[in-house]
Amino acid sequence: MGQTLRVTVNGEGRSDEVEPRLLLVHYLRETCGLTGTHVGCDTSQCGACTVLLDGAAVKSCNMLALQADGAEITTIEGLAPEGGLHPLQTAFWENHGLQCGYCTPGFIMAAAALLAENHDPSDEEIGRGLEGNLCRCTGYVNIRKAVKAAAQAMREGAAAPIGG
């Protein structure tokens, strides 16, 4: 029953036979071995599974893998060049934007999409941009701070371009 999925993941072209019901998140985690993308709910509320699909943030547990056919996907592992850090990653680190770290890849990917469109988001715009992601540890204070810091770093040109 498998159908062919052709997709580019973190710059690497792939072709895999997948079952139609395979969720994109399971394709990324189990077929591609990219376990940085997490599953936190069944109903698309938590955003832990957020990846970039042709540059837009999407919830990979709320898509069939086959729906990504032909697309370019960026996961947290592919956001920065191997061994380097994206300004968002640096900012989350410097601003204590994470505690347990489970929601963090989803937040960083959603924030990457936000900053690609809005280089200087206000507090409210950050809230709207990240409304689809839940964090249980931080109270969000340092996540907001980290996104602002990353935006500033990227504006100041110290930054690599957004992945994906």
């Binding site: 990219l34 376990t35 940085g36 947290i76 920065a80 850090l85 989350f92 994470l98 963090t104 890849p105």
Partner: peptide, 8 residues
């Protein structure tokens, strides 16, 4: 954790 290399 920020690079997706946590091991849950």
């Amino acid at each position: 954790l920020i690079t997706g290399h946590g091991r849950f």
